[in-house]
Amino acid sequence: MASEADDDEVFGLRVVTLAGGGRVDKALAEALPEFSRARIQALMAEGRVSQGGAPVSDGSAKAVAGDYRLEIPPPIAAEPKPENIPLVVLYEDAHLIVVDKPAGIAMHPAPGSESGTLVNALLHHCGDTLSGIGGVARPGIVHRIDKETSGVVVVAKTDAAHQGLSTLFAAHDIDRVYVAFTRGAPSPIKGTIEGAIGRSPNDRKKMAMVKSGGRHAVTHYTVVRTFGPVERPLAARVACRLETGRTHQIRVHLASKGTPCLGDPVYGSGSPAGPVKACIETAQLSRQALHAAVLGFVHPITGETIRCESPLPPDMARLEALLSQL
């Protein structure tokens, strides 16, 4: 599945070695930062934490030195319910639907976010025609974009369309162009960022460019315009064309150039210049400045060439107007 997407659940057997001392639930939460202390306590209550073959059920007990085994079960997919959430439909027929997703809406239900998603809205709009191939919690979903990324998404309404679209994404026969506003400007002004992306070894909730164990990722970019001094731009509008679609691909790749998306709370390390920061605040941009602007493909059933475009959403349009004054 192609994915510029929200983090997947982390599950499976985990073995953690503790030095001993302090509360065991706190020590385990510190050793496994991807899990909250409450989550550790819940696993204990379910009998999924053990040490030396004996279950560990009391989180307040003192941690002893040694290996702890934690069994992390996969999330149980709840069947999403239809919800009357407005949709901006760019194209629709009996086989598929293309929508313009606003920022702030997750693609599909996940633990802690079981409602208010694009899938909930599509179930209301499409009824029983939505494909179930993507799984109970992700019917029709072929590719994903992050919750706080806006823009064009295609969803299958039939199994045949789902299979056809999945084949197109796997073969990279989809034209996907994103607009990003970055801190500074990538150099050179046009190029390709290539590097495998996998879980960050330092933070399991983040992705990173890795030397081994990741998935091949390629992003082609062009600096469309810069803002501020020509010799040292304070920000830039960048067009990114995806060759592959990995989790957080554009955000990770742009950050690797030292030019993260403006407003990115995860990969935007360091603050932008004062004037740019003021523009972000005035524009009321409260998320990463990334928008899926173009989605083009050959219809897997009819053979028709489909190309859907989405203009910049209000927050990013305001940001560009303000940056233009620098």
Results as ranks from 00 to 15, higher is better:
K277I: 01
K26G: 11
K147N: 08
V88L: 04
S60D: 13
V99A: 03
S324D: 15
L254M: 15
G195P: 11
V238N: 03
P272D: 09
G20T: 07
P233M: 03
F227C: 09
A103W: 00
A61N: 02
S256C: 05
I197R: 04
D6N: 09
V24C: 07
Y267R: 08
R144T: 10
V16E: 05
A196N: 13
A283E: 02
R138W: 12
G116D: 09
P201A: 14
I105T: 02
K157M: 02
V16S: 02
A61D: 12
D264T: 06
D146A: 09
T17Y: 10
S324M: 12
D100G: 00
T182A: 13
K81L: 13
Q51F: 12
V16C: 03
V179S: 13
Q249S: 07
G195L: 13
I189G: 15
A29G: 01
G20I: 09
S57Q: 12
E304A: 15
L312F: 01
E243R: 11
Q325N: 15
V152L: 02
H220N: 15
V177G: 01
A29K: 04
A321W: 04
L32V: 05
L43G: 01
K101N: 03
E30H: 06
G112H: 01
A235C: 11
V238Q: 06
P311R: 05
V298W: 06
H125T: 04
T17P: 00
L118C: 12
Q51P: 00
F297S: 12
K277H: 11
P314N: 03
K26R: 12
A63V: 14
A106D: 11
P188N: 08
A160H: 04
V56P: 00
Y221R: 15
L90C: 02
A61W: 07
K147F: 10
I301T: 09
L18P: 09
L90D: 00
A180T: 06
N202Q: 14
A103H: 08
G52P: 05
R183D: 15
G198K: 11
R204M: 13
G228Y: 08
R138K: 15
R199E: 12
L96A: 08
V266F: 04
L123E: 07
P186C: 10
N84R: 14
H125N: 04
C308G: 04
S36H: 03
V15H: 01
L168G: 10
T167C: 09
T158G: 05
E281P: 00
V154E: 00
R251D: 08
E114S: 07
P233D: 03
A273C: 07
P82S: 11
V210D: 05
T129Y: 03
T167F: 07
S212V: 10
E46L: 07
S187P: 02
V142H: 10
H162P: 02
I193L: 15
A78N: 11
G195D: 13
A170G: 07
E309P: 00
A293Y: 01
E309G: 03
P313Y: 04
Q41G: 00
A78W: 06
A29F: 02
A170I: 00
I250K: 10
I133F: 14
V142T: 08
